[in-house]
Design a protein around this nucleic acid. Structure first.
Lengths: 256, 256
DNA sequence: CCTGATGCTGCCCGATCGTGCATGTTTCAG
DNA sequence: CTGAAACATGCACGATCGGGCAGCATCAGG
């Protein structure tokens, strides 16, 4: 059964998205082809901007798509302000779902330590940030942690989510635009986030400026389904056109 | 199957961002490479302005943190050595269960980043330390996180553990003595650790000197049931009397 | 059916890169 | 001052890369 070059290209991108990196030797073994062909594929993909060529293999094109920990350094102050504005949406005694993403990690850190709150999360970084807080009941959703996303969202995670009800869910976003709505880079991740919307009374998303107006391949849902949209202080009104539905409220983070 | 050089660079910057400093010797051990290579990496990163080179390691480019003091905290060095000695027990391709505890966190950090390994853990701190490693398949066990222990071990966690088999389990200990064996402070935690013993081919425990000869209220099992006991370099033989069973091996961490 | 063009593939070869080791030099601590 | 650790440099070896070339399949046009 021969494998079409286009199929191979798609498979390579798929693996790149899944694992966060690919090795030329591995790909050659997997597709039973020579490393030369793989090199040519990677060269073409890199020329098209779909990946970044490195010695021995390839990496995702933008470091933004890489592991979440690598993103923690950039735009930290803006995300901290976003985190405080979003954390203010949480009332005492609530149960809060916190999804993955560096912005959501800032929300978790910004949660007041003196208020009783139950946090449910699928992101180890969020869990580690909240572990040890005495007034915080912390529940972790299990499953395989996706290496590039830094969170679990497979079938085991969905099973763990069963029987949980939250007052508010903070959804992570890779892109937020008027047309496609809230989008991410992984289909399973999108499915998990859709499930979050189902098991919570309200949904909120906090996005930095560079994600507004952009879209990733997989749609979670329309922005109008969100109850709260938290954006940076200087966001122009034009960037929010068509985002908020009748039930949505837009919050601007205080300037840093 | 080496790690990609670019990945190593990114990982070094990641650690630098997280810890505020990196030591050449640590990085060489973690990536299982020579210190020369690490020095070359640090030189290149410093040339690119991504870090600031200092004697023995590197610091973030911004002079926000004081100079590196190599001789701070002998206990930190001891635990790091303990972690490296324990991590050396892991063979490539293995599935490893890592329990909670600060020593086990050191083991996780000391796992070589260039080897394929599957890690299953109930501790958010361990998961956060390993999240983003491309060669590491990370599985989180869900459940409510005990605030003082910093890990999950309730019924949900036991359910998540169902259907998992590991080649090696690193069990955390609050006390390790000849009579009661391995002991902890919480009955449910003890039950969880007993379950770890059942679902893994081998069990290992790494303990610092102050835990040897002490006991906590709840017994996990006899020390003889452990296949590997990792202790600090200077531990006297007398402190190990009656601990090791016929199948047990005692490892001494290299002196720092 | 035949033929030539095109694209994809595998192989070969010189060039480049990354790495570890050996050597000599510099820096730090006591 | 002295010894140990860290460092820079040069070199050798292996892995990877890019380009060129030939074989094979597909396909359009005669």
């Amino acid at each position: 059964m021969p494998i079409l070059p286009d199929e191979r290209h798609a498979a390579i991108l798929d693996r790149l998205l899944r694992d966060g990196r690919v090795l030329a030797a591995d790909l050659a073994a997997e597709f039973d082809t020579s490393e030369d062909t793989i090199r040519r594929d990677l060269r073409d993909l890199a020329a098209a901007g779909r990946c970044r060529r490195v010695y021995g293999g390839a990496l995702p094109p933008a470091p933004d798509i890489g592991p979440v920990s690598r993103r923690n350094g950039v735009a930290r102050d803006a995300k901290r302000a976003l985190g405080h504005a979003a954390a203010a949406l949480v009332a005492p005694g609530w149960t809060v779902l916190i999804d993955s993403g560096s912005t959501n990690l800032r929300i978790a850190e910004a949660l007041p330590a003196d208020r009783d709150v139950t946090v449910v999360t699928n992101a180890p970084a969020v869990a580690a940030a909240l572990a040890g807080r005495p007034r915080c009941t912390l529940v972790v959703l299990g499953g395989r942690v996706h290496p590039t996303v830094g969170a679990a969202f497979g079938p085991r995670t969905l099973r763990d989510l069963d029987g949980i009800w939250a007052d508010l869910a903070f959804i992570g976003a890779c892109g937020l635009a008027a047309g496609p709505g809230l989008t991410v880079f992984d289909p399973e991740e999108a499915e998990f986030k859709r499930r979050l919307l189902v098991v919570s009374a309200r949904a909120a998303v906090a996005v930095t400026a560079e994600k507004l107006g952009t879209a990733a391949p997989f749609v979670v849902g329309p922005a109008a389904a969100l109850h709260h949209i938290v954006v940076e202080a200087g966001t122009p009104d034009a960037a929010l056109d068509g985002l908020a539905g009748p039930r949505s409220r837009v919050h601007r983070a205080d300037a840093a």
